[in-house]
C-alpha cells in the first residue's frame, strides 16, 4: 500500500463568487515526483498556496505531511520545503549566510546547519562560492542552490513552482537530476512547470483546467488514453476542449 503524504478530498476555494478550486480530490505518495500542470488561471497557484499552508480552504479536507491545512497550517509549513522561480534566496547575503538563515527559520540546530551547509557546498561543488553574494552567482547556480536550501531540513515534501523557468538547457537537466536524487531519498516532489518535456519526467501528473483536475495519471497512461505521443499533445487536447465548452 502506497503511503500518501498529500491527501486532498473535495477541496473548494472561493474568492467571492469565483470558484478557483472546484472540488479537487487527489493523493500524492511518498517519494513520488508529482507534476501539477494547468493552463494559466486554471487554479494551480491557489491550490499550491493551500497545500503549503499559506491559504485556508473554503471547504473540503486537505492533509499535508499528516497535518490539516485548515487547522494546522503552521505545522505544515515546518514540514515542507518551498521554492519558486521568482524569489528564493536573499541577493545581498552570501551563499553561507542564506543557508544559515533558512536553517534557522526551519528551527534546525546551529551545529547541524553548519554540517549540512558544508556537505551541500561540497556536493554542489560550490566551495569556492561559499562566501560570495547570491547576486554574483549565475542564475543556474542560484536555482540549484535554492532547491538544496528548500530541502536542507529534510522535509517530507518539497513544492517547486516553475523552478526551471528561463534556465539554460544544461542547467535545466542538472536540476532534474537533483530532483530525481531527492525523490530517491524518499522526499516527495510536487512541481509545476510550463515545459511539457519536464512533465514527462514526472511519475504522475495532473492537469487542471478552470478550477478542476481534468486528468491525473502517469505520463504513459495519459498518452495512451488520449492516443497521442507526448504530454504536450495531451495538454493541448485537454485545454482546447475546455475552451470550446465555455
Amino acid at each position: 500500500m502506497k503511503n500518501a503524504v498529500i491527501s486532498v478530498h473535495d477541496l473548494v476555494k472561493k474568492f467571492g463568487s469565483f470558484v478557483a478550486n472546484d472540488h479537487l480530490s487527489f493523493e500524492v505518495y511518498e517519494g513520488e515526483i508529482f507534476g501539477f500542470l494547468g493552463a494559466n488561471g486554471a487554479g494551480k497557484t491557489t491550490a499550491l498556496r493551500i497545500l503549503s499552508g499559506l491559504s485556508a480552504p473554503t471547504s473540503g479536507k486537505v492533509l499535508v505531511a499528516g497535518f490539516d491545512a485548515a487547522r494546522d497550517p503552521e505545522k505544515i509549513k515546518k514540514n515542507i520545503g518551498y521554492m519558486c522561480q521568482k524569489f528564493s534566496l536573499y541577493n545581498d547575503l552570501t551563499v553561507r549566510e542564506n543557508i544559515m538563515l533558512y536553517g534557522g527559520i526551519y528551527g534546525m540546530r546551529k551545529a547541524l546547519i553548519r554540517e549540512r551547509c558544508e556537505e551541500l557546498l561540497e556536493r554542489l561543488r560550490f566551495m569556492e562560492y561559499g562566501n560570495r553574494l547570491i547576486s554574483d552567482l549565475p542564475l543556474g547556480l542560484r536555482q540549484k542552490l535554492a532547491f538544496s536550501v528548500a530541502v536542507l531540513h529534510e522535509p517530507r515534501i518539497v513544492f517547486l513552482d516553475e523552478p526551471t523557468g528561463g534556465v539554460d538547457p544544461i542547467t535545466r537537466r542538472q536540476f532534474w537530476e537533483m530532483i530525481y536524487e531527492t525523490a530517491a531519498r524518499g522526499i516527495t516532489i510536487f512541481v509545476t512547470t510550463h515545459y511539457m518535456d519536464e512533465a514527462e519526467y514526472c511519475d504522475r501528473i495532473s492537469i487542471m483546467n478552470e478550477g478542476r483536475i481534468v486528468a491525473l495519471d502517469t505520463p504513459d497512461g495519459l498518452k495512451n488514453k488520449y492516443r497521442v505521443d507526448s504530454v504536450e499533445e495531451v495538454f493541448v487536447k485537454i485545454v482546447r476542449s475546455g475552451k470550446i465548452s465555455v
Binding site: 494547468g38 493552463a39 494559466n40 528561463g166 510550463h194 504536450e232 495538454f235
Partner: peptide
C-alpha cells in the same frame, strides 16, 4: 511567451 502555458503560447 515567458510563463505562459503551452496552449496560449501556441
Amino acid at each position: 511567451t515567458t510563463g505562459v502555458d503551452a496552449v496560449s503560447r501556441s
